[in-house]
């Protein structure tokens, strides 16, 4: 049985990665298991300078999911390079850094630094719904995505993945912008913009009023979008949104994802990613699949 995949030039021992912002820089979960079991670790969204994030409350539970408005709190790329990267490197897994900026120049500056680091890939976050400037502002038009991605592509030699927001009318056209700009892959979806109201206080629960929805609640939307994007572009897809089991992962792969990512699923059980790897192997056994890459995009439409 072969679970290896090649995602945008990154050789992974299996298709299971952990999603940005739900795994920190790996330390906390390494108390529970060997990070070397994962296909890759995708870091918390990291910016040029440290960011302190939004006012609390920053998270709240919703039906089969949660809203967050963390606001990209992170220690900045320099701190990451000196403290977290050497730690992560101790494990036999691939490291993909989720990069965020608030202007094109900032994305470029940041990626110039990332290009010099011992990492396996960069995931451009053009899709965070929780910060005022940047991110999603570039992420919701074909032109916007293409412009940032092209500028970063020029200076980045490492595999470049662009993460898409689902808060758009036509996800396929946005993915096309990524492909046309020369990126190696897309990842989707980031969180769906949502809101929850405390009916007694008559105010939104989150201090930021709105937040990003994640968890099993968003899975059908994510699967549909992965399918649409897979029909529109030829670059590989990292699929995510609500995955908490091997079955969920297989659904994304059939829809067209080469690799998948576990996000909020890490919170409900630190072993969700490991169980997902086991679940994928079980499915392979049950369905007599020798190579996991054989099932990518194999859904047949009715």
């Amino acid at each position: 049985m072969n679970t290896k995949i090649n995602f945008a030039g990154i050789e992974m021992k299996n298709p299971v990665t952990v999603a940005s912002g739900t795994f920190g820089y790996g330390r906390e979960y390494s108390d529970f298991f060997d990070l070397g079991l994962l296909g890759a670790v995708i870091t918390k969204g990291t910016s040029l300078k440290p960011k302190s994030g939004n006012k609390p409350p920053r998270v709240c539970e919703t039906a089969s999911g949660m809203l967050n408005s963390i606001g990209l709190q992170n220690p900045g790329v320099e701190y990451f390079a000196n403290n977290d990267l050497p730690y992560l490197r101790k494990f036999d897994t691939k490291i993909i850094v989720n990069a965020c900026g608030s202007s094109i120049d900032e994305y470029v500056e940041l990626c110039k630094i990332l290009n010099t680091l011992d990492i396996d890939g960069v995931e451009l976050n053009l899709s965070c719904p929780n910060v005022k400037e940047g991110c999603m502002a570039f992420g919701n038009t074909y032109e916007g995505v293409k412009e940032v991605t092209s500028k970063v592509r020029k200076i980045l030699d490492k595999p470049l993945i662009v993460k898409l927001t689902p808060n758009v009318t036509d996800i396929a056209s946005i993915a096309k912008g990524v492909e046309d700009a020369g990126a190696d892959a897309v990842s989707l979806i980031n969180t769906l913009l949502g809101m929850k109201i405390d009916i007694y206080k008559k105010r939104p629960v989150l201090a930021n009023n709105t937040g990003g929805l994640s968890g099993p609640a968003i899975k059908p939307v994510a699967v549909r979008m992965v399918y649409q994007v897979s029909k529109a572009v030829n670059i590989p897809i990292m699929g995510l949104g609500g995955i908490i089991s091997g079955e969920d992962a297989i659904e994304f792969m059939l829809a067209g994802a080469t690799a998948i990512s576990i996000g909020a699923g890490n919170f409900i059980d630190p072993y969700t990613s490991i169980k997902t790897i086991d679940g994928i192997k079980e499915y392979m056994k049950k369905c007599n699949i020798e190579n996991i890459s054989d099932i990518i995009g194999k859904v047949e439409m009715n």
């Binding site: 912002g21 739900t22 795994f23 920190g24 906390e28 979960y29 918390k44 302190s52 994030g53 939004n54 006012k55 609390p56 409350p57 920053r58 998270v59 709240c60 949660m66 967050n68 963390i70 709190q73 909020a264 890490n266 919170f267 630190p270």
Partner: peptide, 21 residues
């Protein structure tokens, strides 16, 4: 107390302001 996502220090949800900031 504050609303938490993970409880492990990963999601950075349960923020409380530092007095020095």
């Amino acid at each position: 107390e504050e609303k938490m996502g993970c409880g492990l220090g990963v999601c950075l949800g349960c923020a409380v302001k530092t007095a020095k900031s």
